[in-house]
Design a protein around this nucleic acid. Structure first.
Lengths: 183, 183
DNA sequence: GTCTATATTGTGATAGAC
DNA sequence: GTCTATCACAATATAGAC
């Protein structure tokens, strides 16, 4: 059984992603979570603390992802590009939601996203050994993420299919710089 | 002499970029433009029409940019990457502002940005002759744009310096697929 | 064209019953 | 823990003076 607290946090993330920060009001979130405004405010005494809790959740999820990236069988770069396609995982949902907060000017959201972004770049740099190449891969991932943010509204993501053509370009890019086989 | 209408539109764009959609209230915009709330509402009878006008401005600026991209001396791809770094041009300022509207759930803003995005991708596809390569370049530009959106708050952009290392990677990428000179 | 009220609504938050 | 009032305030928009 998921706790009320978790359901409220889920509802908040979903409201942020689908309707935008402006429409993610306490009332809208409460309705989505199936509680009243007062019920919501028992768990999160202020909207600020609701945002804090969502940022905390993102930090935890991202830490796990950085681990997965480091240990990926096909390497951090391919893992990063693969998972940058929106996949409706809890990490993706939370990331999109916190991005909305960041776009609305929330400084905590910005700090959290920047910290995670730095970690991803560090892992890529370690793995590829080249700063410019790592930055390029990171930018491609940012681009995919940016497009996910574009289509997050109106509920349904356009389900960016795992893009073999793009991965092939990435392989050529990586192969050029590090000692991978060249056809 | 710039008209009041233009100053209000500038103020709106700046307020959106710096403070976010939530804080870009009529009062804040009016204060930034040096008029009263009532004075603002004489030029734009509703906030909706203010947003419309900003979207219209973006469409015009983007059309000019697509032209410049087509005729760029160093080719559309390099031009696109160069200008995707935030440069405090009117196009960049307007693009960031409309992106905030889009993130807030405004459907017109989303439509406008998507249309422009499609045009950029088309020009890249025409010029490079390869769909995957064009998408990759486009994604790198999206990534740069995404990072500009991250640092647009708090007024001062971190002035993403024109990145020679990144351009070198782009050149390698392009050189691999089309028949460009290879040093 | 620009201003100062003022009406109206939506939102975050509190108080207290159950 | 959850609910139903209710308050205080902020934001859009209107009306009318200058």
């Amino acid at each position: 059984m998921t706790t009320s607290r978790e359901r409220i946090l889920d509802a908040y993330a979903e409201a942020l992603a689908v309707d935008g920060e402006r429409h993610a009001t306490l009332e809208a979130v409460a309705a989505r979570a199936g509680v009243s405004k007062g019920g919501l405010l028992y768990h999160f005494p202020s909207k600020d603390q609701l945002a804090d809790a969502l940022c905390d959740r993102l930090v935890a999820l991202a830490a796990a992802d950085v681990d997965a990236m480091r240990n990926a069988a096909d390497g951090p770069a391919r893992h990063y590009i693969r998972t940058s396609h929106y996949g409706d995982t809890q990490l993706d949902r939370t990331l999109v939601a916190v991005a909305r907060l960041q776009q609305a000017g929330d400084p905590r959201a910005r700090a959290v996203i920047e910290a995670i972004s730095d970690q991803w770049l560090s892992v890529l740099h370690e793995a590829l050994g080249d700063r410019d190449l790592a930055r390029t891969i990171k930018l491609i991932g940012d681009g995919l993420y940016h497009n996910a943010l574009l289509s997050a509204h109106s509920g349904q993501h356009t389900r960016t299919e795992l893009d073999e053509g793009l991965l092939a370009v990435i392989d050529r890019l990586i192969g050029q710089r590090v000692d991978a086989p060249q056809p």
